[in-house]
């Protein structure tokens, strides 16, 4: 029972990342009809917003180390600590949540530029060319990051009050022993609230309603005198922000490196396909579901029966779903059915 609970939780936080990326992919696909192979790169760029902020805030200066009295010793002290003392230290420890504030405008800007500058010109071109050009863009983005930050993963810190583990077992009355890292719980809550916010935006606001109408019938919405293209551009920006935020918050779990985007992209595509191309709910549900399935498959006793199953279970499910139910779990009729 304890083990099961832990596996579910393990799956949920990884599934949270899948769900957020897949949500953005589906949004872009549903609105613009573009298959975006560069979406994983957006996730990676979000993670590197955190790294950038950490580098900026952590700019340090060499000062004399007063604690060493026998000889002249120097140490690196960040300016923030030098100027503000403990408050500066606290800011440095809170860099991951703080970088959300940086990531939102930056990712929105990147998304808008990407849509206006590149994707817009590919609406009418074949899907193969869309895949190819966004694939090229993904390579370019990831190589730029590699040139700027190097090829090694850059670990990030968790704010001190979230380090350590939560005693989940005691909350649920299972007795002590079942504990789970706080940050992963935060990540789960965060991804759920971002998903909730996106759905609220689409379902409850007039703007979102227009976007949904445009997804269903773009031409009619255009005939009603609404500039749907503009709104779709904003939706692309929104998808970029969602992917970026997923990346920002994931940095303490997985130290960001330049190819993390590609790694997540392949899985996110599988998630989208399993959930059903064009279905937002399907993408989110499949994201969490596959996360959980993957974490169950990596349990020791299952691996003893079927060695290596944790590596391939997701792909097997995707193949099975595509063959048995090509539309995916919740796919809409007529989306990409050829």
């Amino acid at each position: 029972m304890d083990a099961l609970l832990l596996q579910v939780l393990n799956g949920l936080d990884k599934g949270g990342a899948y769900a957020l990326i897949a949500l953005g992919l589906t949004l872009v696909f549903g609105t613009l009809g573009v298959v975006n192979f560069a979406h994983g790169a957006l996730f990676m760029l979000g993670a590197f917003c955190t790294v950038t902020l950490q580098k900026i805030l952590g700019t340090s200066v060499r000062v004399r180390d007063e604690s060493v009295t026998f000889f002249e010793a120097y140490k690196e002290v960040p300016y923030l600590v030098l100027w503000f003392g403990d408050a500066g230290k606290a800011v440095l420890q809170w860099v991951v949540p703080l970088s959300i504030l940086l990531a939102i405008p930056v990712m929105m800007l990147i998304g808008l530029v990407m849509e206006r500058g590149l994707i817009r010109h590919f609406y009418k071109r074949p899907h193969a060319e869309q895949i190819l050009v966004t694939f090229g863009l993904a390579i370019v983005l990831q190589e730029i990051i590699k040139a700027m930050f190097g090829a090694n993963p850059i670990p990030q810190v968790v704010p001190p009050i979230f380090s350590g583990s939560a005693e989940i077992g005691e909350w649920l009355g299972l007795g002590p022993g079942v504990s789970y890292p706080w940050w992963r719980l935060i990540y789960l809550a965060f991804s759920l609230s971002v998903v909730g916010a996106v759905f609220a935006f689409l379902q409850r606001t007039t703007y979102g309603m227009t976007v949904r109408a445009g997804m269903a019938d773009r031409e009619t919405v255009g005939l009603l005198g609404i500039d749907i293209e503009n709104r779709f551009t904003l939706v692309f920006g929104l998808a970029a922000v969602v992917a970026g935020l997923a990346g920002v918050m994931y940095t303490p779990v997985l130290p960001p490196d330049y190819h993390m985007g590609m790694d997540f992209l392949v899985l996110s595509f599988v998630v989208v396909v399993v959930g059903g191309m064009g279905s937002l709910g399907g993408a989110v549900a499949a994201g969490f579901l596959l996360g959980i399935v993957q974490s169950f498959a990596s349990m020791t006793f299952i691996k003893e029966i079927l060695p290596g199953i944790d590596q391939i279970i997701i792909y097997l499910i995707a193949v099975g779903i595509l063959l048995a139910r090509p539309r995916g779990l919740m796919g809409r009729k007529g989306v990409m059915e050829t």
């Binding site: 396909v273 290596g308 590596q311 193949v319 063959l323």
Partner: peptide, 21 residues
């Protein structure tokens, strides 16, 4: 069994699966 992007994603998934294996 499928065509278009589904075909691309299927081949991608199966190749990635072989690589992992």
């Amino acid at each position: 069994r499928r065509s278009g992007i589904y075909f691309s994603i299927l081949t991608l998934a199966l190749a990635q699966m072989s690589y992992n294996m």
